[in-house]
Design a protein around this nucleic acid. Structure first.
Lengths: 167, 167
DNA sequence: GTTGAAAGGATGGACCT
DNA sequence: AGGTCCATCCTTTCAAC
């Protein structure tokens, strides 16, 4: 499936009007995108064509971004997950640009947010073990200046879903 | 597609041996699970049948957990994302059980981890706005005793991928 | 919104290398 | 083991109604 032309990836997004059927479709697809049109149509109480048209529109509107396989980190041997809280003293554009690139270039970083408040950034990092985290950490601070780092080690994933609450 | 019988959802997982072709297949499916068998086979340099058998085995082994649609939070009007750091003084089983249930019951909580160290839990919460976060917060502390809460508001999602690094 | 038809993809068998 | 061919079923896609 190709990227819809009307929306940038990660770009700003105007909220979209959804009715009850749209919401049901999205809820289903968030949990299992391998459902067939027939199954979806049956469960939302409509028939194939309108459901198909709605899904196409939701894709074009950028509500549905993409369809992916979710892998099991433990099965891949990624036994350690860290949340990394970062404070920096540098706030110029060049630094931010290099920091961004450093994060984008590292596949261990699965999530990164710029924050409001005294902590500047939070990262979520998947690695094989504590030693691999240290290698990641050394490599990162070797590439960009960072004032202060706190790593929070996850002991247990209590809940993890890719399904957003649909308002 | 039904849940494979040999692996619990979220259960402990023995790492699996993967060769180069498996890794390529997983990398592709992590980014786009709507690719056809033909496309995958072409890109990994193999033909349909062995690729299909590998995918089936990866599913049965629990490496591929499921296939989902990724939605755009902004398009759904979920403009606020918080990371919530939680300290608690209670550590008995009953409290933990009620806390877990409170998190599982709230769709705004998309992620929750029990941590090592002085912060006990971290949550990731998607809500419409700051007011909705406050409602969530009040409702949560009304349901379970929590000693200390720090909310980190995301200003910008710098990176967000469902793709794990494949070792 | 419904029906149905045509095209394309998935699944699994048979057989070969 | 992987490759090819094939047959069948299922799904998607898009007419026409």
């Amino acid at each position: 499936m190709s990227e819809p032309g009307s929306n940038e990836v990660g770009g700003a997004q105007t909220p979209v009007r959804l009715d009850e059927v749209d919401r049901k479709i999205l809820s289903l697809l968030q949990l299992d995108a391998s459902l067939s049109l027939d199954q979806i149509a049956e469960r939302v109480g409509a028939s194939k064509t309108p459901v198909w048209n709605r899904i196409r529109k939701l894709r074009e509107a950028g509500v549905i971004r993409r369809q992916v396989a979710i892998l099991d980190p433990e099965a891949l041997g990624l036994e350690a997950c860290f949340f990394v809280l970062i404070r920096t003293s540098e706030h110029d554009k060049d630094w931010a640009h290099r920091f961004l690139k450093a994060l984008r270039d590292r596949p261990e970083v699965v999530e990164a947010h710029r924050l409001a408040g005294d902590i500047d950034y939070i990262l979520k990092v998947h690695v094989r073990n504590a030693r691999a985290y240290d290698r990641f950490y050394q490599s990162l601070i070797g590439e960009v200046r960072i004032h202060n780092v706190t790593a929070l080690l996850s002991m247990e994933e209590i809940k993890a879903t890719s399904a957003l609450p649909i308002p």
